[in-house]
Simulated assay, not measured.
Amino acid sequence: MILGIGTDLANIDRIQGTLDRFGRRFVDRVFTETEQRKADNRADTAGTYAKRWAAKEACSKALGTGLRMGISWKDMAVSNLPTGQPVMKVTGWAAERLREMTPEGHESIIHVTLTDDHPWAQAFVVIEARPLP
Rank of each mutant, 00 (worst) to 15 (best):
T102A: 03
V126I: 14
A121W: 08
L3Q: 02
V126K: 06
I71N: 08
V125Y: 02
E107G: 15
H111F: 11
T34E: 13
Q36G: 03
I12M: 01
A55W: 01
E104M: 12
G70E: 07
D75H: 06
G84R: 01
K74N: 05
W93Y: 14
G66S: 06
S60W: 12
P133F: 08
T83L: 13
A121T: 06
A62D: 09
T65N: 14
E107Y: 14
R24G: 00
A95W: 08
T113W: 03
L98T: 03
V78P: 11
L114S: 04
E96Y: 13
Q85N: 09
L9M: 13
R97C: 07
R29P: 09
E104P: 11
D8Q: 02
R14M: 04
A121G: 08
E35R: 00
G84W: 04
I12R: 00
D117C: 08
F22M: 13
E100L: 14
T34L: 12
T102R: 04
P86C: 03
S108G: 09
W73K: 07
K89C: 10
S60L: 11
P82T: 01
D28Q: 09
R130H: 12
T83R: 10
T83C: 13
I109D: 14
E104G: 11
P131R: 12
W53A: 02
A129D: 02
L98S: 01
P103D: 05
H106N: 12
R130D: 00
M101L: 10
D40Y: 11
Y49A: 01
D75R: 02
M76C: 12
A94N: 07
R97L: 14
K38G: 00
E96M: 11
R37E: 15
A129V: 00
G84K: 05
R68P: 06
F26P: 03
L3S: 03
K61S: 04
Q16V: 07
D75C: 05
A55V: 05
P82D: 08
S72A: 15
K51W: 01
F26G: 06
K89H: 14
K61E: 04
W120R: 11
L98C: 05
A121K: 06
D8S: 06
K56N: 02
